[in-house]
Structure formats: structure tokens, C-alpha cells
């Protein structure tokens, strides 16, 4: 990405131009992300609306297309209320702590061949580290609000995220074994040669574990016990209003898009074409695959009832984790004997 911009800025001193290019690249990644997040909320209301035989938002703009902006302006002009006995500093820092890792994780995500902000060697580990940091926003928000419901939501979230992170990490170990690299671009390159060479074929159980754990990590239905609006009002963000509240949602939707994109990159060959002889590779494949998983997030919410807390724990520790361990053993054997086109 840096190479594209540097010819236009070589009149600046070297270190300053590097800084400017970095800032411009960040804007190029984050501004479209915010717009996608805004329309993802609109898509969510529309898709779930049609699934429940309703129309969904249709008043602001043509077919309700300006609804996200109306919501945004409403939230911006609302007052941020700090509860009287809350810890003010931590209360205001919590949304930032949820938001910052959700944005930072995008630094290593490749969008096409060579189109990546920072092509670091340990990209997969970095993503895992950043997504695991998001839980602090939830925990601190729950504690600093000084409210029973908020604390209950935070406690649920802490236990849930730690449980599913382990299954998620083990699923990624499988991807790492198959590709032999922690670099996300190299992982995509390792799946070259059509749909049969994608990692979803040899790693099907890990694919399911990863996506289920991803849904749980983002606190989305049917794993949204941290929010649990029918049991604990709104969980960790019950005391938040205005922009402080919407920053939590910005982080949540950015994380949903990130999980969808990563699933597409690591299991479905990212920007690679399923039939390379007929249609070439290109970024539109990545958009298509990511869009499918983004739709799944909404579909889950319209379909499944919320899991009970003990069932979530059982699924994480007693079902998903053993599945990954067994499949890692299978994969180890496959790698040792160099089976198929994947481990050759």
C-alpha cells in the first residue's frame, strides 16, 4: 500500500512523508469501514425485517437508505449521562478500550494481493491478541457503571470470551499447520488452485469451530448473554447513552466484519477464485465471501434463541475444544504423510 502513495509525496522529508503515508493509509482503511458499519446496521434491520415479514426502516431517504445517518446524528446530539456513583474516568475510557483494538486489528488484514497496511510476519497472532483485548472494554464498562446489571453482563462476557478464545486459537493452529505461516497473505497464497485447495476442505470441523467462536467473541446472538436485554436489561452498556453507547456498537460491528473477513481469508481462499480457469482472482471474491458471512451473523440473530449461560460454557469447553484437539491430531497425521493437495 505504501508503494502506491510514495511517488506523490517524495517532496517531503523522508521521515515526515512516511508519517503522512501511514496516516493516509489508515484513513483509506477506516473511512470505508465506518461506512460499511453504518450500512451494516441498516442491512441488519432490513434483513431481519424481511425474515420476520416486516418492512424495516423505510422513512428516511429512498427505501430508508439514509436511516444510518439519521441514527448517527441522533446519537451524536444526545447527552452522555455518567451515573452518580460511577468511576467517571474508567466509565469514559471503557468505550475507547472496546473500540481501539477493534480498529487496530485491521492493520494486518490483506484485502488483495499485496494490498495490506502492514505485512507483518506474525499477523495471525497479532489479530488473535487484538481481538482478545476487546473484552476489557466490556469488563471495565460493567464494573465502572456501578450497576448490578452491568456487572452481571461484564462477568458473563469475561467467562464467555476466555472460554471461546481457546477454541478459536486452536482452530487457528490448524490453519497455521496447513499453511506453514503466520502471515495472512501467505495463508491465502497457500490455498491457490481452485475450490478443492481451500482450507475449508481439510479443516471443515475447525472452520465451524472458528466461526461459532467468532460469533461468541463478538457477543452476537445467540451468544449475546453479555447484553441479554430480556434478562439483564442491556448488560454491560445499560448505563451508557449517546456517543459513548454508539462507540460500543461501532466496535461490535467492526469486529463482526473482521471475523467474516478473516473466515473468508483463512478457510475460503480470500480473493482467490473458486474456478480459476473460468473467472480470475480478484478483490470481488473477497467481498462476496465476506458478505456471505456477514449475512450469516444477521441470519443467526433472526433464527436462534439466546443460549442459556451454562449451555454456552458447555458448548465452549466440552464440545468445541475437544473437536479442535481431535482434528489437530488428524491434521498432524495428514501433514506427516503429506496427504492430498493441501499438505504436500
Amino acid at each position: 500500500m505504501t508503494e502506491l502513495l510514495s511517488p506523490y509525496l517524495n517532496w517531503l522529508p523522508a521521515e515526515l512523508s512516511w508519517l503522512v503515508i501511514t496516516l493516509i493509509s489508515i484513513v483509506i482503511i477506516l473511512v470505508p469501514l465506518f461506512i460499511i458499519v453504518a450500512y451494516y446496521t441498516y442491512a441488519e434491520r432490513k434483513v431481519i425485517g424481511y425474515m420476520q415479514i416486516r418492512i424495516g426502516p423505510n422513512r428516511v431517504g429512498w427505501k430508508g437508505l439514509l436511516q444510518p445517518f439519521a441514527d448517527m446524528f441522533k446519537l451524536m446530539f444526545k447527552e452522555i449521562i455518567v451515573p452518580s456513583n460511577a468511576n467517571t474516568y474508567l466509565f469514559l475510557v471503557a468505550p475507547v478500550l472496546a473500540f481501539a483494538p477493534a480498529m487496530a486489528a485491521w492493520a494486518v488484514v490483506p484485502f488483495g494481493e499485496g494490498v495490506v497496511f502492514s505485512n507483518i510476519d506474525a499477523g495471525l497472532l497479532y489479530i488473535l491478541a487484538m481481538t482478545s483485548l476487546g473484552v476489557y472494554g466490556v469488563i471495565i464498562a460493567g464494573w465502572a457503571s456501578n450497576s448490578k446489571y452491568a456487572l452481571l453482563g461484564a462477568m458473563r462476557s469475561a467467562a464467555q470470551i476466555v472460554a471461546y478464545e481457546i477454541a478459536m486459537g486452536f482452530a487457528l493452529v490448524g490453519v497455521l499447520m496447513a499453511s506453514g505461516s503466520l502471515n495472512l497473505s501467505a495463508i491465502v497464497e497457500a490455498q491457490q488452485g481452485g475450490v478443492w485447495n481451500w482450507f475449508i476442505v481439510p479443516l471443515l470441523p475447525l472452520f465451524f469451530v472458528y466461526f461459532i467462536a467468532g460469533v461468541a467473541e463478538t457477543n452476537r446472538a445467540p451468544f449475546d448473554v453479555a447484553e441479554g436485554e430480556s434478562e439483564i436489561v442491556a448488560g454491560f452498556h445499560v448505563e451508557y447513552s449517546g456517543m459513548a453507547f454508539s462507540v460500543f456498537f461501532l466496535a461490535e460491528y467492526a469486529n463482526m466484519i473482521l471475523i467474516s473477513l478473516l473466515t473468508a481469508l483463512m478457510f475460503l481462499g480470500g480473493w482467490l477464485s473458486p474456478v480459476p480457469d473460468l473467472i480470475g482472482d480478484g478483490p470481488f471474491w473477497l467481498v462476496l465471501k465476506t458478505g456471505f458471512f456477514m449475512l450469516l451473523f444477521l441470519w443467526f440473530r433472526a433464527t436462534f434463541p439466546r443460549y442459556r449461560y451454562d449451555q454456552i460454557m458447555r458448548l465452549g469447553w466440552k464440545v468445541l475444544l475437544p473437536v479442535t484437539i481431535v482434528w489437530l491430531l488428524v491434521e498432524g497425521v495428514a501433514v506427516y504423510f503429506r496427504i492430498g493437495p493441501w499438505f504436500a
Binding site: 488473535l128 482478545s132 476489557y136 469488563i139 462477568m155 469475561a158 467467562a159 476466555v162 478464545e165
Partner: peptide, 9 residues
């Protein structure tokens, strides 16, 4: 990401 989360818990 893991140890301190449980600690805080």
C-alpha cells in the same frame, strides 16, 4: 488477553 481477564473477574 486471558490471565488478567480472569484475575479481574
Amino acid at each position: 488477553g486471558a490471565v488478567m481477564v480472569l484475575f479481574l473477574f
